[in-house]
Amino acid sequence: MDQFIEQIVTGLSIGSILLLVALGLSIIYGSMGIINLAHGEFVMLGAYAAWVFHTYLGLGLLASLVPIFLVVAAFGWVIERYVLSLLNNRPLDTILATWGVGIMLQQAVRLSVGSELRYVQLPPALSDSMDVFGISVSSYRVFLFVVSIALFGATWLLMNRTPVGMKLRAIIQDRSVAASFGINAKRVYALTFAYGAGLAGLAGALVSPLKSVSPDMGTGYVVDAFMVVVLGGVQSLAGTVASAFILGELSGGIAFLQNDTVAKAIVLLAIVVLIRFRPEGLFTARVRA
């Protein structure tokens, strides 16, 4: 029984990291239809920003979260403005362009900071462990769980309860009609992309104490995050949350029963089958085409 609960908690922990990373991707993909292959690099930038703030400015991880969000969001804004907005009606080409951007970011970091592994310290206040359902869990993992849920809530509010969110939803429904009502689609898109990038940066900063920071750390994340978004369904934030935790529990569980490789392969195959039969994701109601 203890082992079972431990598995559940491990799954929740994996799931909350997945949610953190996937949330930004989900916003960008769901609202702009852009498959952002540079997403992993935004995560990496966030992790490096955490390291830079800590090493050169002496800021703790928690204190630097807001600046990290802003820095990575600024990167996102520039990339949307000067690369992606030129590719309006070529969705396949955005995959290529964002991938190229990702390579550039990765190389730029490798050339400037070097490719050796960097480490970010756990915030001292969260470095102990606490009891959850009779199991000792690191406080930081609990913190991550809470933050991921909070960020999801903030994003939901932003999308559904603010003027910017309403404009974005109007553009998603019909860009030209929205534009004729005076909504500046370009500006909203740029802001959306920047927000998604900022979220990725936060995710990178938050996972940086758990994993080592390296220029190519993003590659694994982008694949996982993508699977979450596909499983959850485009344009469904709640679906993203559900699928993040489902995938977390699933990969935790299979890895426990088999091994990591088998877990990865099975999850990938499941996704392939899912795309074939339910490309709109598990949690989206079928809407008028």
């Binding site: 690369v83 590719l87 070529r90 080409d93 190229g100 951007v101 390579i103 190389q107 730029a108």
Partner: peptide
């Protein structure tokens, strides 16, 4: 390493301006 950076930039430019 530098070449990979240049390659990424070249690739983005080709995608944008030379489909």
């Amino acid at each position: 390493e530098t070449w990979t950076l240049v390659m990424g930039a070249l690739f983005v430019l080709v995608v944008l301006f030379l489909p």
